[in-house]
Design a protein around this nucleic acid. Structure first.
Lengths: 247, 247
DNA sequence: CGCCCTTTTGACGAGCTTCAATTCTGGTGG
DNA sequence: CCACCAGAATTGAAGCTCGTCAAAAGGGCG
């Protein structure tokens, strides 16, 4: 969406919406983000945004599109460590001269921009901190998923997590969202083969747990899934998610 | 390690040695750490140091002993997310009112202390940042391990990583180190069963890759293992590990 | 010495992978 | 508008890695 379109429609850009959901952004923060968004860089699918063991030039925000942090073993096996979604921070660490700990590859057409300095406003710094804490929490979930869940559980748990994350950016429509990811990518993310992913997806479709076609995923009863998986939404701070005022 | 660090004592406490290896600690940092260490708290095996979803009271340093960050699924399946080793920072995040994203349980008798504020000295802040970056890198390795490695590979890769980490604290003796961990804990860390861990360990003993008895692990040819696993030491900053002057 | 935790062993079965082929889909150019 | 193509999804058969269950053997510590 262009800036103009955004202004016209009065709908918040997803990336901004996510950061605004993580902390009460003041007007300085919002202005800085808008300025940064306006200088966005376009990325084509399969393009590398960061390369493992290469210097991290700047801290970025993913404005639009999906990306994947990946590591590749010497024999070609690939692991997707996690997905980057609109509003996610990329390469944020408090360290001088950092090297990327993994490669980040665009899965779709995407837009990234340089992230405004946290010193811009305390509320922005707070949003960054919250984003970092969430990212760590999701990483730990990924470890538990790969280590101790069956294929069926991994898939549904990952779907729930994606739904949870996309909801922050306003990119879900009641349990449904766009998922521009091939079954092979899902396999690489979940430590399985694409063949097995395919079989399990079909099973989940048959039992009515999900619909998935044309890149649109529908979770028919997210709460039931959450219960059966024992999954609770990420909670990383006493002040977030805000106890009141949530949907 | 700085002159100051060397002057102060012949044998360095492992935790101090690790932090000094991550950044050139100045005398203020070392003094603050020594003071903090002196006020250490003792922890018994199986005691919880942090509880998931409970507030993090203070940022801690593990001075002595091993601990495990764990998550438990509703049906009792347990996943060890990672191990905390001497010199590791615990609960460090830049966030107000943080909640622990996982439980931390002592595996052995242990000692922890409150970490001196990073504002104590720039070098201390730098060591903390490096430690955090390393921790993230190890977490990503754990994801790749669980997602894309066979049981045999997971075990050896994890041993190499532990060796690499313990070396920073001076707790290895040429490929050998104390590993106070039952096979069941290894299984929980590597997403396997203790039965299978046992079988693979025996196989690795037979082929001469490792020795393991009485809690002492020996990697007979770490470099050969590293090569066959395609494992490279963690590198998270252009200024660390220092290009020159390493053992 | 005796108890409990840990390690070890065996037999069996299930979940997931591998390999290979076929069908489907979306995008492209004629 | 349709034919075509490459990548993606789907299907089947066979096999291996790893899990499960159960029992026995070892080891550390009061």
């Amino acid at each position: 969406m262009t800036e103009a379109a955004q202004r016209t429609s009065g709908r918040l850009e997803p990336a901004l919406r996510r950061l605004a959901a993580l902390a009460d952004l003041d007007s300085e923060a919002i202005a800085a983000l808008r300025t940064a968004f306006a200088r966005a860089r376009s990325i084509r699918p399969r393009e590398e945004i960061l390369s493992e063991r290469r210097p991290v030039a700047a801290r970025l925000i993913l404005i639009e599109g999906w990306a994947a942090r990946t590591r590749v073993l010497p024999d070609g096996r690939r692991q997707i460590l996690n997905f980057a979604l609109p509003g996610d921070l990329i390469g944020h660490c408090r360290q001088e001269a950092p090297l990327a700990s993994s490669s980040l590859i665009a899965l779709t057409r995407a837009r990234v921009c340089v992230a405004p300095a946290p010193s811009t406003s305390p509320s922005l710094e707070s949003a960054y901190a919250m984003s970092g804490a969430l990212e760590e929490s999701y990483q730990l979930s990924q470890i538990a998923r790969l280590g101790r869940m069956s294929a069926h559980e991994r898939i549904l748990d990952a779907f729930l997590e994606l739904s949870e994350r996309l909801e922050l950016a306003g990119l879900t429509h009641g349990g449904a969202f766009e998922m521009p990811v091939t079954q092979e990518m899902l396999a690489d993310a979940l430590g399985l083969t694409s063949v097995h992913i395919n079989r399990m997806l079909q099973q989940s479709r048959k039992t009515g747990e999900i619909s998935l076609s044309h890149g649109t995923l529908v979770l028919h009863d997210p709460d039931a899934l959450r219960t059966s998986l024992g999954r609770e939404p990420a909670r990383v701070s006493e002040i977030w998610p805000k106890p009141v005022g949530r949907v």
